[in-house]
Design a protein around this nucleic acid. Structure first.
Length: 628
RNA sequence: GGCGGUGUAGCUCAGCUGGUUAGAGCAUGCGGCUCAUAUCCGCAGUGUCCGGGGUUCAAGUCCCUGCACCGCCA
């Protein structure tokens, strides 16, 4: 059985989870779910990174011990993942005893290989910060936080001979194009490796920092946090003797954001090399979410955290948005407006409505029974071919992390199904008993297509996929694997389908929010300016449709003189309903031609639940009089 | 200061190894349908492809240079 192992970084517990953590973990989850669907045996690891200076400092600031502080923040992460429907197999913490043993084992191995030496390191040490400051951090030679001059301290430490493996690493990256991907990050690492690599300081004296894993060969020192943290990826597989390590190493794919490229692209492979462990398969590097406060949330005076939006709009929509919007590797913008736009356009209008209309027709025309299809015509085969084509593309696109391209492909299939419906108009077929078999075929193709779509989207939107499959009467969702959509026709005739709730209700609230904002920003006008508008009481003398327009009506209105007016209210009023009505007309509006008819004014109207309604008076007003 | 990235329609972005009238989605306008979540389908646009040079028969695509923004490093 083919295998795959996915990891997220173990998240550093000096801050609470945010959108970036969520994205990395959701991507790992999508991969994990997809490869399971494709029949792989998988393992998925995430967790928290808990040692080191910053955690010790954050704990001190919070008045806690490092351990209790780490426990608390680690729990925040652990509690978040189920809410995002994450299917990790293990949650690892670097403060676990098992991990400490593995770190010490690796240190000993590297030490025994002769790759660790004791040396002296000098730097600007700030007692307030309890750490070394770089030249750049210094402001006028002083610590920017404490305003004190740091001491130049020489400190003895252990160093990992990273430089020894520089050439090996360069060659490995060059010989394995997918080792670090996308390519931009591979190039970045190669560029970095053009300069001589410095050896890595891997210890901290206990006198300065006690919150770490003791070195096995010198009890006076603890391990540098990165050397400790990276090793989690093999601890998670129960290195060295665990069965999982044999199964899932080195078929390992790390997922990281670009900020931790160097430790993963350089420290980690050289550490593995020194310890005699083969390197991982892929390092998958993604970009940042640029979060701009959307106007929507600003105008309401409350700043919305991206992660909170999953509760507001639903988890699947949130997951879909993250994977659809960001080309893997690049930075992308995150905004509530963009999220709402994706929900309405892609999820409600395209997918949700397709499911809704298909199942409604199956219920209405076939009493909810999955029909037996008859002979296929070309257009029916085209739908099949397109669906099978997306299935075939899936493994390639997901394999190269092109999630957005894959989702585009699925949505092309969804659009094709919508076109298929429009072209074949099943509602017309249903009116003609002679076309019953044709109707059966068309609806079968549509239902089967929904089955394909549900399987294809299931790694991204597991809840939604489940809902669609339930509506299709599929009793065993576990049967719906990638293999099940290698062939058309898996949906068994005779089964029952039913139309459920709308999968994704349109988000209308925000439209109102935008309108509200527009109103708020409308500037104030003076009485004089208002009086420039000549509003008159008018009586509708005649009304008729304008041909070729379904929105416009042509009216003749008496305001003391007769005016021709074109009004965009044909969807709400039949011409005869308007005749005799007393209305309000803007009488001094610049005349304009609409659909070839000159309009000499504008009828006042407003929105209502039933569409446009025209403004009238509650008692009889005098025709032609001024409205104030 | 060094290294790298980005700059294409109102918005968000595709455009591989240079090759006919530069694309998609959203938004906009018009039309069609009525099964459907006022949804769907069709049609219609709009662009000094950041500026300036250069290479070439041919450059959004390659080279040089300038500007703007963003990373990483020192």
């Amino acid at each position: 059985m083919k295998k795959n192992y996915f990891t997220t970084p173990i998240y550093y517990v000096n801050a609470e989870p945010h959108i970036g953590h969520a994205y990395t973990t959701i991507v790992a989850d999508v991969l994990n779910r997809f490869y399971k669907l494709a029949g792989y045996q998988t393992f998925f690891l995430t967790g928290t990174d808990e040692h080191g200076d910053k955690v010790a400092q954050a704990a001190r600031a919070a008045g806690e011990t490092p351990q209790s502080y780490a426990d608390r923040i680690s729990d925040l992460f652990r509690a978040l993942w189920p809410k995002l429907n994450i299917t990790n197999d293990r949650f690892i913490r670097t403060t676990e005893e098992a991990h400490k043993r593995v770190v010490q084992l690796i240190l000993q191995k590297v030490y025994d290989a002769g790759d660790i030496y004791f040396g002296e390191y000098g730097g600007h040490y700030c007692r307030g910060c309890e750490r070394f400051l770089t030249e750049k951090e210094l402001a006028d030679g002083k610590c920017p936080d404490h305003g004190t001059e740091p001491e130049f301290i020489k400190e003895k430490n252990y160093f990992f001979r990273m430089s020894k493996y520089q050439q090996w690493l360069i060659e490995h990256i060059q010989n394995h194009p997918g080792f670090i991907r996308p390519e931009r990050y591979r190039n970045e690492v190669l560029a970095f490796l053009r300069d001589p690599l410095e050896d890595l300081c891997i210890s901290r004296p206990k006198s300065r920092l006690a919150w770490g894993i003791p070195l096995p060969f010198d009890a006076e020192y603890v391990t540098y946090v990165w050397f400790d943290a990276l090793i989690n990826y093999i601890t998670g597989l129960d290195y060295p003797d665990g069965e999982r390590f044999g199964q899932f190493w080195p078929v390992c794919q790390h997922l990281i954001a670009k900020d931790i490229l160097k430790p993963h692209g350089i420290y980690w492979p050289t550490m593995l090399k020194s310890a005699g462990i083969p390197p991982y398969q892929h390092l998958n590097v993604h970009g940042y979410w640029i979060v701009s406060e959307s106007k929507m949330s600003k105008s309401r005076g409350n700043i919305v955290k991206p992660l909170d939006l999953k509760d507001k709009y639903g988890l699947d929509a949130f997951r879909y948005f993250l994977l659809r919007e960001m080309p893997f590797g690049l930075d992308s913008n995150f905004s509530e407006t963009a999220l709402v736009s994706r929900i309405n356009a892609d999820l409600a209008n395209d997918l949700g409505n397709l499911v809704s209309r298909t199942l409604a027709m199956a219920e209405r025309f076939l009493n909810g029974e999955i029909p037996r299809p008859g002979g296929l015509e070309e257009i029916d085969r085209d739908l099949e071919t397109a669906a099978l084509c997306v299935t075939r593309e899936a493994e390639r696109l997901i394999g190269e992390l092109s999630f957005h391209k894959f989702l585009i492909a699925v949505w092309e299939l969804i659009n094709l199904a919508n076109k298929y419906i429009d072209t074949l108009a099943p509602w017309s077929l249903a009116k003609d008993p002679a076309k019953a078999e044709r109707l059966n075929t068309v609806l079968y193709q549509l239902l089967e297509n929904l089955r394909f779509v549900s399987v294809l989207i299931s790694p991204f939107m597991p809840q939604t996929a489940g809902k669609i499959q339930a509506q299709l009467g599929i009793s065993e969702p576990s049967s719906q694997t990638l293999a099940s959509i290698q062939q058309w026709g898996g949906l068994a005739p005779g089964g029952r389908v039913y139309k459920g709730e709308a999968l994704f209700p349109r988000v209308e609230e925000n439209l109102k929010g935008a309108e509200k904002e527009k109103m708020e920003t409308t500037s104030l006008i003076s009485m004089e300016e208002f009086q420039k508008v000549d509003l008159r009481v008018g009586k509708v003398l005649a009304a008729e449709n304008i041909k070729k327009s379904d929105k416009l009506l042509k009216l003749r209105v008496d305001i003391g003189e007769e005016r021709t007016v074109v009004a965009g209210i044909a969807r709400s009023y039949k011409p005869e309903e308007l005749v005799g009505k007393t209305i309000i007309l803007v009488a001094n509006l610049q005349p304009t031609k609409l659909m070839g008819v000159e309009s000499q004014g504008m009828v006042l109207s407003a929105d209502s639940a039933e569409g446009f309604i025209v403004a009238t008076f509650d008692k009889e007003a005098k025709v032609g009089s001024k409205v104030r």
